[in-house]
Design a binder for these strands. Structure first.
Length: 270
DNA sequence: AAGCTCGGCAACCGCGGGGCG
DNA sequence: ACGCCCCGCGGTTGCCGAGCT
């Protein structure tokens, strides 16, 4: 089935927004919110498609938008986050208060990309970022927050429940299955598993005799800062029914590690 | 001063995922 | 289980102003 173009209908305006249109959109959203973008332009009396309205609001009119040049800190954050996330601009934007994905994308392409060595530039375009695969928690599970993950401070992880299910940080479910069966979705997840180092697998995870225990010691960073791998199912089991750690929480964790180590060379690739 | 080039940025396009009937 | 609808995302386009010749 071929999807009809967004603004196929005649009479819908395209291109730059006029100040009057902005005003209409702002006042409408202030009064009514934006429940349904598709219906919004008609209700607000705008000759725009809903998509265009949404984009204009998100990228320009939102009251919490921070305008102006990016600070050095922000640029540094973008570079670091891009190392972690790849071209997932919305995820990067979520970490930068008041900045939009579009803005970050533009800054990246116009300024920041040029700063990288050529090899990195070519890699970055094809670099595979973690796909967000947010799993909505069941009624009998709960979301674990970044701080909760960080506070767990584990020595070991159990790959039966932690590794296989946390292989993609967007989708971590612990406490429901204790078997080692690999599902098709796990295969995709395994592809996006952080590449750590060879010893990580040879010493622990790939140990035939003890395939489920991984020592966090095998994950080392260049500055010798001791790091604790985030997930330990045993303690998590003790805490309750299980949990879902969603994608952003996982990213928060890795970003935290990154900012602590400050060494992109040692960052796990996705 | 006029024409051209380039960079920056706002906006558009098309795809994929999730919700819902 | 399936199809439709809507939303959000990432890639791309095109306009516009600044700088250069």
């Amino acid at each position: 089935m071929v999807r009809a173009p967004c603004c196929e209908k005649m009479g819908l305006k395209k291109g730059p927004w006029a100040p009057e249109e902005d005003q209409i959109l702002i006042s409408y959203i202030q009064q009514h919110g934006h429940g349904n973008w598709r219906a919004l332009p008609k209700q607000a009396g705008l000759l725009r498609c809903g998509k265009s309205c949404r984009l204009r609001w998100i990228n320009y009119l939102r009251p919490d938008i921070k305008r102006g040049n990016f600070t050095a800190e922000e640029e540094e954050s973008i570079i670091k986050l891009h190392e972690i996330l790849g071209n997932r601009w919305s995820a990067i934007a979520a970490k930068l208060q008041g900045r939009t994905d579009n803005e970050i994308k533009n800054v990246w392409h116009t300024h920041l990309k040029k700063r990288l060595p050529k090899t990195d530039q070519s890699n970055s375009s094809t670099k595979r970022a973690i796909k967000p695969k947010i799993k909505r928690s069941d009624s009998n599970t709960s979301i674990i927050t970044q701080s909760e993950v960080a506070s767990l401070n584990f020595r070991e992880m159990d790959t039966t429940s932690a590794c296989t299910t946390s292989s993609d940080f967007s989708s971590v479910t612990v406490g429901e299955s204790k078997n080692n069966s690999i599902k098709s979705e796990d295969i995709e997840s395994l592809e996006t598993m952080p590449v750590i180092d060879e010893s990580f697998w040879s010493e622990a995870a790939m140990d035939d005799e003890n395939p489920t225990t991984v020592s966090s010691e095998s994950m080392t960073f260049s500055n010798e800062m001791p790091l604790q791998y985030p997930f330990n199912s045993e303690e998590i089991f003790q805490q309750g029914q299980g949990y879902n750690a969603n994608f952003d929480d996982g990213m928060d964790f890795w970003y935290d590690i990154f900012t602590r180590t400050g060494d992109s060379a040692e960052l796990p690739e996705f």
